[in-house]
Write a protein that binds this DNA or RNA. Structure first.
Length: 226
DNA sequence: ACCCAGGTGGCCC
DNA sequence: GGGCCACATGGG
């Protein structure tokens, strides 16, 4: 990173303000409890949230949305229940890997794991098969409620198009944000949720940028970044 | 018939 | 460090 300035800091905060003014608080993560949150984070990997909701409903209907149930269910049966989330064979294995980790190291006490510091929790999550940087950051931020900035494909594309960073890597975009923003859980929570919301609701359904709250940063008619 | 989704791991160079 | 692929359902 190393090219940060009060300029890009102000721009970044302005971008957040524009999104917040437009869309308001997003109230993420949509889950009834920490375990459902973590399950959702794994199921939503490269998958639309709509399909994840169906899979979570299936788990609830089968009374399988609990660590003991997932721990005791054979992988192929679990896969059938979460089928709608796509890549279900892979994800069934990831859910079981997560559950067995928490059972082995915390006697099944997920909140105990989530109580660690953000950096320790992140490091530990990354050792679990099927949890990569984005899923880990989601769990730290939305499950552990510690300020770990979540980057996704939308974030990287937005920062690239808006001229904040050129072809950012995951870690590059994360470090950029964490260097410029105060480590505020609420801010990080809303920032990521708003970028997702904007990218889906606005950019996809209205590709012409009509009324885009980020028009200042659009490549076509940019007015002053950099 | 494509292309994309709130990614990750494996393999390659 | 990057590029490519499989994983796979459901909606545009």
């Amino acid at each position: 990173m190393c090219r940060e300035s009060t300029h890009s800091k102000d721009q970044l905060i302005l971008l957040f303000d524009r999104l917040f003014e437009r869309y308001g608080p997003q109230h993420w993560w949509p889950a009834d409890d920490p375990f459902e949150m973590v399950v959702g984070a794994i199921l939503t990997q490269n998958t639309s949230w709509k399909n994840v909701e169906k899979a979570i409903e299936s788990l609830k209907a089968a009374e399988m949305l609990s660590m003991p149930a997932i721990g005791a269910t054979p992988p192929d049966e679990l896969a059938r229940v979460i089928r709608s989330s796509g890549c279900h064979t892979v994800k069934a294995g990831r859910l079981k890997a997560l559950v067995s980790h928490v059972e082995r190291h915390y006697d099944g006490d997920l909140p105990a794991m989530l109580r660690q510091s953000g950096s320790e929790l992140r490091r530990e999550l990354l050792t679990i098969r099927g949890i990569g940087p984005e899923t880990a950051d989601c769990i730290v931020l939305y499950g552990g409620e510690k300020p770990s900035f979540v980057v996704d494909a939308y974030t990287r594309r937005l920062f690239d198009r808006a001229g904040f960073l050129a072809r950012p890597t995951y870690d590059g975009a994360k470090e950029f944000c964490e260097a410029l923003l105060p480590p505020d859980t609420r801010l990080f929570n809303e920032f990521h949720a708003l970028i997702v919301r904007h990218s889906i609701v606005h950019c996809r359904s209205r590709p012409r940028c009509a009324g885009c709250p980020l028009a200042d940063w659009c490549p076509g008619f940019r007015s002053g970044v950099n």
